[in-house]
Nucleic acid binder design. Structure first.
Length: 583
RNA sequence: CGGGAUGUGGCGCAGUUGGUAGCGCACCUGCUUUGGGAGCAGGGGGUCGCACGUUCAAAUCGUGUCAUCCCGACCA
């Protein structure tokens, strides 16, 4: 492909709307353009890369026996009413009417359509198992699309759906898909891990998320290197500290009164945050139990964790059995505690429904808390004696350095991006939509289903996030838009042009997908552009080539330039690099 | 949907106490250049997001609205 006849609107400067490195590069390198919030055009370069990524996914899906099809992006709302997800999806489901005034929606996912399809066309257990997949658009009217393709409203997904006669069959189909995912992400060169997603979903569903580790991931993952435990920060637990520092201190005292210390008020003028009070009293933050007042749909609740910890609001929601949760407004806190913000403690609270404490708080006897009084804190506060917790649960966020609850290894916390999600659905959709087949005994049974997604656009952007540097995109050859670039440094020079044309023609004849920069621009611009758009190998033809009769092949990943005395050895090397790319 | 920020030529930005818009890059023409975002000369392009208002006069002040981005809530 000649650069001059292709379409690569590259940008010299960072676009102001992008904040993520990969988002900036997608725009700068001319891979995508935003049309509207969360809605993107794939430009020719981005599309080429996307197609190569899709092909890798296809190969691995096909080799596990999945069959590709394509379902409609526009779907009748009736089907969604039938499954009940019309309401579940709420505003994320974009609805509209056709000219007949019938209701339609843009597909946010395809369980309904695929279940309906199989229901109408698969009648016997002999046709099972069956796994269908597609790679195409989904639309979710996200509240806040962001970070380019990472969270878009319209996005490309690979989604697969397995149909089996029973649970054992489902397990087998699920295993195959998991294996396909492992192969796909290994081929892409990612550092990834499957983690169990939220357990105890309706109907005993089981699902795992495929997480790729990246500094800029939106999700946080807790990992134990020793036993391999991995879970999302909202699910992960850690071994709880059995004793607080104060308790250890008092246990060492000989006086009985010291071992059973009473609540004692401390004067803490203007010291509100745990940091401030800890510094003022010269004690460790771990001696504190902080009390936070939350507002929920069923009234106000108090939650307590150790002073050196953060509350995990998802865990708290689950523990308290509420759906909505947010920190109470200042005036509510003052009304409930009778003190300004920063001095809340767990006793004498007005109009409070519930006190939820972290299990670590319950594990120890003596805490420093707020006194519910301006400029005062309370020491030696004992759960059960000085206040009554209603619920004791794990409501703290795991922190790096915590001990693993399983093997007592040290936990680390890493950022990650969710690129895939595999799910055992069971009979959830087949039963709702009454999708049945006949088993060996001639009895009608519901299909046992699984579903398996990969965010394809998001994967492309993650590849760029991981494989790029300051000079531009550094994609592996398996997904780079072109395999090789030929750059003519002076398109006005006849000799240089002749050599460039010849190399371009020869490589193309070898079946190599080459971009040939034949533009009549200055050398610097062309070299910068080629680096930016992410071509792994480039052959530079300039004066040096003509003068010294030396052909240069540059490998982008390593920065190494190899030189060759004749074209045959250049081509041989090019062929080798593409056959066994290190990248 | 709450909080914050920004909207001025294709891109990135400046524009003072209100006086009718400018810079860099890009673009077009010509010449010279061509191994890491070239030089000289000439040129085109903006009803300053939109609407209403204040004013003799609005990019500038006020109100509203829309769009984009960030934080939060949300996310098979």
């Amino acid at each position: 492909m000649r650069y001059s006849s292709f379409f690569i609107p590259s940008l010299k400067e960072d676009p102001k709307e992008a904040v993520l490195k990969s988002h900036k590069l997608l725009l700068r390198a001319g891979y995508v353009r935003q049309l509207s919030g969360g809605i993107y055009t794939y430009l020719p370069l981005g599309l080429k890369s996307l197609r190569k990524l899709e092909d890798i996914i296809r190969q691995e899906m096909n080799s596990e026996g999945a069959v590709e099809l394509s379902m409609p992006f526009v779907q009748p709302l009736d089907l969604w009413k039938e499954s009940g997800r019309d309401e579940d999806y709420g505003k994320e489901l974009l609805r509209f009417k056709d000219r007949q005034d019938r209701d339609f929606c843009l597909a946010p996912t395809y369980e309904e359509v695929v279940t309906d399809l199989v229901k109408k066309n698969v009648k016997s257990y002999k046709e099972l198992p069956l796994t269908l997949y597609q790679i195409h658009l989904k639309f979710r009217d996200e509240m806040r699309p962001r970070f380019g393709l990472m969270r878009a409203k319209e996005f490309i997904m690979k989604d697969a759906y397995s149909f089996d006669a029973d649970e054992e069959g489902l397990d087998e189909s699920y295993k195959k898909m998991k294996r396909a995912y492992e192969n796909i992400f290994k081929r892409l060169g990612f550092d990834f891990k499957f983690i169990k997603a939220e357990a105890g979903e309706i109907g005993g569903n089981y699902s795992e998320e495929l997480m790729v580790f990246s500094e800029y991931g939106e999700d946080r993952i807790v990992i134990c290197k020793d036993c391999g435990y991995a879970a999302s920060i909202d699910e992960a637990d850690s071994a709880s500290d059995c004793h607080g520092p104060l308790e250890r201190f008092y246990a060492q005292q000989s006086e009985q009164s010291c071992r059973q210390p009473k609540m004692t008020k401390l004067f803490t003028p203007d010291k509100k945050s745990v940091e401030e009070v800890a510094e003022y009293l010269k004690v460790d933050k771990a001696c504190f139990a902080k009390t936070l007042i939350y507002e929920t749909e069923s009234g106000f609740i108090a939650a307590m964790v150790k002073g050196n910890r953060e509350i995990n609001e998802r865990k708290l929601k689950k523990a308290a059995g509420v759906k909505n949760l947010f920190l109470a407004k200042e005036q509510d806190v003052e009304r409930i505690t009778g003190a300004p913000c920063g001095f809340a403690g767990p006793f004498g609270l007005n109009g409070l429904n519930l006190i939820v404490i972290d299990e670590e708080i319950n594990n120890s006897e003596y805490w420093i808390t707020g006194a519910n009084e301006k400029d005062a804190h309370m020491a030696n506060v004992k759960p059960g004696r000085d206040f009554t917790p209603n619920i004791v649960a794990d409501i703290r966020s795991v922190q790096a350095g915590d001990k693993c609850a399983r093997c007592s290894g040290v936990l680390t916390v890493k950022n990650a991006i969710e690129l895939g999600h595999i799910f055992k659905l069971g009979e959830k959709y087949s039963s709702i939509l009454n999708a049945k087949f006949l088993d060996e005994k001639g009895e009608a049974r519901f299909f046992v289903m699984g579903c398996y997604g990969i965010g394809v656009g998001r994967t492309l952007q993650t590849l760029i996030e991981v494989f790029s540097d300051d000079n531009g995109i550094n994609l592996p050859v398996s997904v780079s838009p072109f395999s090789m670039a030929v750059v003519s440094l002076n398109a006005n020079d006849e000799k240089i042009t002749d050599v460039s044309e010849k190399i371009y023609g020869d490589l193309t004849a070898m079946g190599i997908d080459v971009i040939y920069d034949d533009r009549k621009l200055s050398a610097g611009i062309k070299l910068k552009d080629i680096d930016l758009i992410g071509i792994p190998f480039k052959i530079v033809v300039g004066n040096r080539t003509i003068k010294d009769n030396k052909y240069e092949l540059n490998i982008k990943e390593s920065g190494i330039t190899e030189t060759f005395g004749d074209l045959e050895s250049l081509y041989k090397r090019a062929g080798e690099l593409l056959k066994n790319p290190r990248v």
